[in-house]
Amino acid sequence: MTQWAKGNLGRAAESILNTPNAHVGIVTGFYIKHATPPSPETDGLGGMAHLAAGLSSAGVAVTVITDAPCAKAVWAVVDALPAPVNLEVVSTAESSVRRLRRFLEEGDRPLTHLIAIERVSPASDGKPHREHGWDMSRETAPLHLLFEDPTWKPRWLTIGIGDGGNEIGMGSLPKDIVEREIPNGSVIAATTPADYLIVAGVSNWGGYGLLATMACMSPKLRPDLLRHFNRVMDHRFLSAAVETGQAVDDSRVDSPGRPQMSVDRIPWDQHASLLEEMADVVASRVKDEAGA
C-alpha cells in the first residue's frame, strides 16, 4: 500500500502550503463499541492534535469534525490544544452530515482542504467495518459524504490518512491490494477515495509526517508549524484523550479495549520518540540549508 501511495505526502503538504487563505478541516474519531467504556480509539486523535496545533500556529484556519459517539474524546483533545480551533459535531444521521456540508461550503470562510485521519469508510456493502469485519454503521456518522457523494462534487481537496485499509482515503487503492495485504480485506476494504492518500504504520504517524513535511517545504512557516511538535505536547494530547475523553486502545475480539496511554498497542513513549526523530530530520534540513 505504501508503494502505491508514494509521493502523496509531499503533494498533500504542497497543496496546503500553496493555497492562499487556506482553511483545513480534520475529520477523526474511530468509535469502538466493544470497549470498556465504549469510546473512540486513541489513534487519529494525536495526529489531529498536532496538525491542528501546527496549522493554527502558522495562521491556517482549522475546523475539527467528528460525530456524537466520538465527541467526548475529540473535544478533550481539542480542549488541550494550545490555541482554540473550531469543533463541529454531527449526529449519526445522514441529514446532519449534509447540513454540516452545506455550512462548510457556504460559511464565511469555506474549507479549502479536508483531512480524514483514522476515520472509517464504508466498504463495498455500503457499511463501515472494524478490522475484523464487525459492522459499525449504527454508531458511525456517514462523514465520508464530506469526501465523496454521487450527487455532489467536493469544493475542497481531500486527504486521507490511514493504516488498516478500512479508512477514508483507502478507496483510492485498487481493491485487490487491500484484499491481498490486509486480513479480512475483502470485507473491510474502503471505497471512499481521497485526492491524496497517506499510508502509515499508525495513522497518527501520518499526521506527524504531513506536518513535518510542510515544515521542510516552508522555511518561513517552519517555526510556527513545529512550535508545539514535541514530546511534552504529545503527552498532553494523549493524556487528555485517555483521562478526560476515555479513549481506548488494544480492543480485540476476545478482549475489550480500555483507556490507556498507548496507540495501536504501542506504548506512548515509543510514539514520542518517533515524533522527536521526525523533528530532528527537519532540524537537520535546516542546518543543511544554512550551510548551502
Rank of each mutant, 00 (worst) to 15 (best):
T112I: 10
D135C: 05
A215P: 08
H113A: 13
T140I: 08
M278K: 06
T158N: 11
H50W: 07
N204H: 04
M233R: 09
W4N: 03
T36V: 06
H228C: 13
P122W: 12
P267R: 00
A200H: 08
S137F: 03
T192K: 07
L274C: 01
L225E: 10
P183S: 11
G201E: 13
E105P: 01
I26E: 07
L55F: 09
T42P: 02
G171H: 09
T2N: 11
V89M: 02
R102S: 11
V232S: 15
A116I: 04
T66E: 01
D224L: 15
A292Q: 14
P40F: 02
G257H: 04
D269K: 01
F103V: 06
H113F: 09
E14G: 09
A123R: 02
L45M: 04
A247E: 03
W152L: 07
P142N: 09
K153E: 15
G47D: 00
P174W: 08
I32S: 05
F30T: 07
P154Q: 10
G201V: 05
A12I: 11
T66M: 00
I115N: 05
S137K: 12
E94Y: 00
N86I: 06
L238G: 06
R285N: 13
S218M: 05
I188Y: 01
L210C: 09
E139T: 14
M278L: 15
W156S: 06
G171D: 12
S121T: 04
L143Q: 01
I168H: 06
S239N: 12
V286H: 05
M1L: 14
S251C: 14
R138Q: 13
L87V: 07
V24L: 11
A49D: 07
D149V: 00
P223Q: 14
G165E: 08
R258G: 03
D249P: 01
L114P: 10
G201Y: 00
T42Q: 02
S96L: 01
F229Y: 12
L275V: 10
V90I: 03
G107P: 02
M214Q: 09
A68K: 12
P128L: 07
I182G: 01
